[in-house]
Design a binder for these strands. Structure first.
Lengths: 127, 127
DNA sequence: CAGAATCCAACCGGATACTG
DNA sequence: CAGTATCCGGTTGGATTCTG
């Protein structure tokens, strides 16, 4: 949920508690757009504008912030071709691909259990 | 992301676009505590107070909201033993266990790549 | 013990305008 | 084209208080 802010103030000091590692990866994967971007890049490198059109609903600001954050974590690589107008390509790094593989598992789960969850909600909300 | 609100207003009407399914599962898994709770329950049923002590940092409010939301989605089952004082146990449902298995994959990923990400951040933040 | 209710700060992210 | 900068509203979630 936290796209890297420049003042990255975190909890006290228990750095490698297992739950903190979990927190880290959730923060990495849990924000609004990162997984969507990684999923798209899983299909091969894309230009900035391709991503923007493909994701539909993402603002320029959030696309940039998301890509910067993924790049910072070594999950996405940014390649600038200094033509005019400039061209910028984004691609998953090898480690980025391993994460996107995990994410693919989640997506599969979502598709397999979509109806179950919907039905459970209806039952719960009934009164 | 979104712990179920009672007014659950979502996007327009393209209900089963693949990206919306992804959105759904991200909303389910991406909030601050759900995965942590599911992970703990993966180790067996727990009482409310056990969860609260184990998670450390979660507020009563959020623990309750998180459990309710998981219960609503059919991922967690709530069992009340009407003694005095009351006793309430929470356990994963079978489907909840399948999700928690996926989540376990993410956790493993996080542990395996924790240092890589930390190093990448240092490099990126250097200048 | 296991919550429900209220209040409120921080933060996330959208809209908009501007640039090399 | 690929961003950056600024403003700003809605949501998330923490603190606190009260209850059966």
């Amino acid at each position: 949920m936290t796209i890297a802010r420049h003042t990255d103030v975190r909890e006290p000091a228990n750095g490698d508690h297992p739950r903190c590692r979990l927190r880290d990866i959730l923060d990495r994967v849990g924000d609004k757009w990162s997984v969507l971007v990684m999923d798209l890049l899983g299909g091969g490198p894309k230009r900035y504008s391709e991503l923007q059109r493909a994701i539909e609903g993402i603002s320029q600001r959030m696309l940039t912030l998301t890509l910067r954050s993924l790049e910072r974590d070594g999950l996405v690589e940014r390649t600038v071709t200094p033509t005019s107008p400039p061209r910028v390509d984004y691609a998953l790094t090898p480690v980025g691909r391993t994460l996107s593989a995990q994410v693919a598992g989640l997506i599969t789960w979502a598709e397999q259990h979509r109806e179950y969850v919907a039905a459970a909600r209806l039952r719960y909300d009934a009164p």
